[in-house]
């Protein structure tokens, strides 16, 4: 079937916006949802603690 033989509705369905592609991909969301707090909360927090000078 050629592109021109499709109805306008079908052509419209083929175009998936980037945001929807992101929201339709649970594993990409899983990566983002774990990476964000892992970096900004856990890793950064641990770095703060390990750089505290040891009391003499």
């Amino acid at each position: 079937m050629t592109e021109t033989s499709k109805s306008p509705d079908e052509n419209q369905e083929e175009h998936i916006p980037a945001m929807q592609s992101l929201l339709d991909n649970p594993f990409l969301l899983l990566f983002l949802g774990v990476a964000m707090p892992a970096v900004f909360y856990i890793v950064w927090g641990i770095m703060e603690i390990v750089t505290i000078p040891v009391a003499p």
Partner: peptide
């Protein structure tokens, strides 16, 4: 999506009065 990206960072409010951070 905002929940997925940012909600968990609020854990930090438990540490707000901790010294060293």
């Amino acid at each position: 999506l905002l929940y997925i990206l940012f909600l968990q960072l609020a854990c930090a409010h438990h540490i707000l009065v901790d010294p060293g951070i």
